[in-house]
Design a protein around this nucleic acid. Structure first.
Lengths: 214, 214
DNA sequence: CGGTTTATTGAAATGCGTCAACGATTGTGG
DNA sequence: CCACAATCGTTGACGCATTTCAATAAACCG
């Protein structure tokens, strides 16, 4: 068994990410239906976004057309933070969602009033860096561990024992770089050892972390 | 086969990373013998570093004590950039090396007053981010592809057809998340199809990229 | 040189992916 | 609200890539 720290569209504890901030007040709201795109890969990145309700997935494709899900974003999470001019991924709603849309210009000038622009950018970049490093760690562990830690992180975010899995098994598989069947089998096994129990396919009850890791 | 862009301690073409920069002028020099540690995981990160001669590996361990090599750093590369207080990895010299040691405090105060330093630091951090993202992509491809691209990236860095592999097969394996035997077999296969040829275990001649990918 | 470390090679075991069939859930129109 | 279709998830059988274990060979270092 390998160790793993997995973050799923996790926000930092900074003021930027918790509750209503000055930045959020500069935002407008947008409603999304299931499957609707927020932005496309290659589009110039003029806004950043924050999930209020629902769930967003970001993804890209490798040269063989295989889909790679790069993150799931839940209420409170910011996404679309790419610092270079163009979005490097697609973003779309997994479930009906409400998001905040924040103009990049306004954001950066606001950051400037708190700190220096450079420091703000550094912080954002460093968060992305941590995320990417955690993803690397995750991809080094076994299939069952990836699934278990995925669930654990979701639980940690939710704070309730009941966890929503708004995304499909295929989404999870493309995020963890596994076959959908492997994800399914891992979930079944976790249920067999009663680490989790299913309410529906998309809502489960997660027990202790220890048992998750087993 | 999956697509893959792998970067190994790659410097950008920016002024920061080639030759002497303003950041480098704040540095002192340190000599390291083979296997010597630069810093330890958990140590508070008071400096950042730049390789002048030799090769540095960074690594950590998973919960089972299995070693995970997170990067190889060659002349021109910066490492130890963790922005949070503590180093998240160990760093040690693979070969006798000379490195620059740059005080973090000086660096950060320079960041606040000097725009070029701030931009430089952003560049370096962005490079590290790219590196981590490429690592994630790399870990999604097959064993043979990982080895092939690893070699190709080394060649691209060196600019010579003759490539140094100062690290052991085990180092490569721990970096690519493969068994040492798998790395060895991949290399053997590449030699059989005469994509590479060995001078010694640690110096090879690499031919075209096309053949590497095969 | 001889001993130690490091790399290669082969054989067997295993984990995960693929393919295919089946079962459950969701959405739609009567 | 039901029935049906379409989608999504589960399960089993099998194959292949990679790991593991074990033996041998090559390089390194006193």
């Amino acid at each position: 068994m390998k160790s793993l720290v997995l973050k799923i569209g996790r926000s930092s504890p900074s003021s930027l990410t918790s509750g209503q901030t000055r930045i959020d007040r500069m935002a407008s709201t947008r409603l999304l239906s299931r499957g609707e795109k927020v932005f496309r890969k290659g589009q110039s990145a003029r806004q950043v976004y924050k999930v209020e309700i629902g769930c967003i997935r970001t993804f890209t494709h490798d040269r063989d057309g295989c889909r790679l899900v790069t993150g799931f974003y839940f209420p409170g999470d910011y996404f679309g933070l790419e610092m270079r001019g163009k979005h490097s991924v697609f973003a779309e709603a997994i479930a009906p969602s409400r998001i905040l849309v924040i103009g990049r210009k306004a954001l950066f000038s606001a950051v400037e009033t708190d700190n220096s622009v450079a420091n703000g950018l550094l912080n954002v970049t460093n968060l992305e860096l941590q995320r990417a490093q955690n993803q690397s760690l995750m991809l080094r562990s076994s299939a069952h561990e990836r699934v278990a830690h995925f669930l654990f992180e979701l639980k940690k975010r939710n704070r309730r024992a009941e966890v929503d899995l708004p995304m499909s098994r295929q989404d999870i598989a493309d995020y963890l770089n596994l076959a959908m069947e492997t994800v399914s089998r891992a979930l079944t096994r976790l249920e067999k050892v009663s680490t989790i129990s299913f309410r529906t396919y998309h809502r489960i009850k997660v027990r202790t972390r220890k048992r998750l890791a087993a």
